[in-house]
Design a protein around this nucleic acid. Structure first.
Lengths: 251, 251
DNA sequence: TCTTGGAATTGGTCATGACAATTTGCGACG
DNA sequence: CGTCGCAAATTGTCATGACCAATTCCAAGA
């Protein structure tokens, strides 16, 4: 009645959910782009920012909450909202949800991880700096020291792989490696106590390291591929045991 | 150890931000997990859901807004909020922001894309179904038809690569390929009109296809690698021209 | 039977206020 | 004069409530 026929405005685009949310994201994006905001710095207070954008605080918060969940922002109550600093990282949550939603298998995750890390190992063999080589070596040493402590071993295992990814000199690649690995890591932490022998795993890590150190990309790739294949096998075994243990518990 | 740099494994994230937001995400995650909610289905109305969770509607909306920005949910005013349907996909926005924030270069993006797509091509050569092969072939045909229309050519170029990624049979991998490609695609769309000759590109696409069709993973990988290297070169050239054109405009 | 109008449903936005955690600065005490 | 401790200001967190806009659906009328 009130709007009789002017409602002819047929929006061609599929309804943009969150007009204002999008606005917030775009605004922050501009702040970053124009270098007015550097990593680690603080954003204007919500009350002020909402006025700047001409939107209400709840709406602003919806947008910020999106950016927080994307891992771009981080907020501390009483202190403020900050651009994350530190190494670039993507939140694994979206991938995890997607995997759950579509029933991705761990085999596929491992396969993807293999492709990413094999590539990273090859690049690392070409580009790793001395310091990065040192970091890898240190993590291997820590793995030696933790042969009797599965959880600790796993921590340094992950750290080694992260070091390789970083040494690839490709932050995009390193970010993806991190994202995929994080999901597998969490799952593995629950089952690794059932693993028996880390010597083989450790040896393969050392082969990867030696190949990178010797600047032999092909060998590094081959070693990493072999390592991940075996890791996947070990993982499958642990899962199996976990499964049978659960069945025993029920009995 | 004494080196305080690498021993900092901060896996714990300050949960301070988003107590309730996290709760919402967890709740939806449970809904999905327990299969009470299938792709394409509708969530309970916000007013009801907020009561179920014992939180206010704005708080609930903050959480939903996160899930929407992750690409898990989609909402239409007046209709409801739905679990996304269709092929699994991760939003590229987070990666784009991260790239902007840390100054990732396009070279690195291409390199990552190469690693992902080369791997996908290899897997596709092992697993592609007849239908998937047909899809690839059709896209190549469309590229033939669009030799004089850069924008259209690019559309089918992207579609071909997507088909290869899907044919890898690995949805995780396909999702990552999609995410990285989307960013490069957007940039490329702006410069492709300056490209001269698509015949070489088309020929390389056909080589990739033939290798996949012939079930020769190594050849498929090699062809894909070669293709992307050249695509990157072409891209760099177009960028250069774009640059000099801009300078001319200023003069 | 088909069209159409409106009411109910549902997401989108806003305003306001109370609350909690952190930071900061001032004052008391050594 | 310096240091510690507490209180106020700052800032994010959450709730309540209201209104708007788009969609859906059903019933009344052509």
């Amino acid at each position: 009645m009130t709007n009789s026929k002017n409602a002819r405005l047929k929006i061609v685009r599929p309804v943009r959910s969150g007009q204002t949310t999008e606005q917030v994201v775009a605004r922050v994006y501009e702040l970053i782009k124009s270098e007015h905001l550097k990593p680690g710095e603080r954003l204007p207070p919500e009350r002020e920012l909402s006025k700047q954008l001409g939107i209400s605080r709840p709406s602003l918060r919806a947008g910020l909450s999106s950016l927080i969940s994307m891992g771009v922002l981080q907020s501390r109550q009483g202190a403020g909202t900050f651009l994350v600093d530190g190494p670039p990282a993507l939140d694994s949550e979206p991938l995890r949800l997607l995997a759950q939603l579509h029933g991705f298998s761990f085999e596929h995750m491992f396969e993807t991880r293999s492709i990413l890390e094999v590539g990273a190992a090859g690049l690392a063999a070409e580009r790793a700096t001395g310091e990065q080589l040192a970091t890898m070596s240190e993590e291997i040493a820590e793995m030696f020291a933790a042969l009797k402590d599965p959880q600790q071993f796993l921590v340094h295992d992950v750290a080694f792989h992260r070091a390789v990814a970083v040494a690839s000199g490709n932050p995009t690649l390193a970010t993806l490696v991190e994202m995929v690995s994080a999901i597998l890591y969490e799952r593995r932490r629950e089952t690794i106590d059932r693993a028996h022998d880390f010597n083989e795993s450790l040896d393969l890590h050392r082969q990867v390291y030696r190949a990178i150190r010797a600047r032999k990309p092909d060998e590094a790739r081959a070693a990493m591929r072999e390592h991940i294949v075996r890791a996947q096998r070990a993982f499958a075994l642990e899962e199996e045991q976990q499964q049978s243990n659960l069945e025993q518990d029920r009995a």
